[in-house]
Design a protein around this nucleic acid. Structure first.
Lengths: 223, 223
DNA sequence: TGGTACATGTACCACGTGGTACAGATCGTG
DNA sequence: CACGATCTGTACCACGTGGTACATGTACCA
């Protein structure tokens, strides 16, 4: 029997919800990796006993945090779809202008931290991984298709856009070079808008290339 | 006086070096976040006492690990410059074929984990951050300039390429969808090669756009 | 008033942690 | 051989951890 627990069904659960909000705020500011229940609790003005009471365990808490982040992502996403976009490039430009805002940096840091924790197999972070790419890919592909790209190209371009956006966010977080990163994004969008004016690009289904030569573990590459 | 220590100057220091290699191998397989000195030590067949003796402290060890990863990066980099490349697209294709190899995945996971730890301010990881973008940007820019792009475009395209590569690696690590990611990369390279055949693209220095409307913390965006 | 369900505080536990003290190994060189 | 320096193993320490037991507070309904 787990010590004590909250009511099995969670009603509006305002107490729990308020705790969660405070916790996320703190993790956003300080990262998720090394924070202990006690540090967390005292930081947000409660006792670690309360966190365990409401969330069962440390991992239970973190799971909830991750779920909340997922939800935010989905919300941001819906917001994006709601907007009547003129062109793909214009839409991309608008999204980027949102994301690069310094106020969002802490959220993005936390997002990437959880992302990598998930890649390392940490259980609590796993949920984030499920839709982290696919949830965005489908709608972006749809949009690009409507914008005139043939399906294969649309899908590839959607995937590329997503990856480049995240890569540039990582760049921005590391270097702080707003201007440089903005120019790179603008470069991509410019390429995109040029390409739609040209004949459609042929997209062979990734020609089978000869396997890459084995690489010594010491030649790591970009990463 | 710190308990005992290794000789102040480190000669070939084979013992230490061997330890470091084993440690990196283990961290590569298991991540860096939650591993304790003792777990590490027993896993690689020594005692935690030894790790402390040779590296001073846990953070001292991790610093060394990060330094080694940096060195690998630099080596991979030199390797890339050594190659006589025909075109930028061809070079990109070759690099990507290396990076996407499954054997490198553990290294890349570790790289991204340390990257995010650095973004969260973890001291030991900081060194990685210093050249994580700039070290690659310079030479890539040079190459693209030789390839016929005007300087501003070359710099933007280099930055974009780096970001997209890392974003696609993150994608690959999360989804495992080799084919999809390959197609996205191929899409980018195709765009690049098309663009060099067209008149050069004008690159206004990031037109001053109106500031983005403030965004509620719940609309997070891609991340 | 009493009772009951939710919420919270205090004290505790066993455990693993990073780090240290200290006693031996091991080994090249006089 | 012996001496010193470079290593390594054993035992220990104080501390912070996640989690639990249990008593108490608080509020609402009978």
């Amino acid at each position: 029997m787990p010590s004590q627990g909250p009511p099995s069904d969670s009603p509006p659960d305002s107490a729990r919800q308020r705790l969660l909000v405070d916790v996320i705020a703190h993790l956003t500011a300080h990262g998720i990796g090394d924070v202990s229940l006690r540090q967390l609790a005292t930081a947000i003005g409660t006792s670690h006993r309360m966190l365990i009471y409401h969330f069962g365990s440390r991992d239970g808490l973190l799971v909830e945090v991750v779920r909340a982040m997922e939800e935010q992502q989905r919300a941001a996403f819906a917001e994006m779809r709601r907007v009547p976009a003129t062109s793909a490039a214009e839409l991309g430009r608008r999204m980027w202008r949102q994301l690069r805002q310094p106020e969002l940096a802490p959220f993005e840091r936390l997002f990437f931290e959880i992302y990598t924790q998930a890649l390392q197999g940490r259980a609590y972070a796993q949920p984030l991984l499920d839709g982290v790419v696919d949830d965005w890919l489908g709608p972006m592909t749809d949009f690009l298709t409507q914008d005139g790209l043939e399906p294969a190209a649309a899908r590839a371009q959607a995937r590329l856009s997503l990856a480049a956006t995240r890569g540039l966010l990582l760049d921005l977080l590391a270097t702080g070079d707003q201007e440089g990163v903005d120019q790179a994004m603008e470069h991509m969008l410019t390429l995109f808008s040029h390409i739609t004016r040209i004949t459609h690009i042929t997209h062979p289904a990734t020609p089978r290339e000869p396997p890459a030569p084995p690489v010594s573990p010491h030649v790591d590459g970009v990463s």
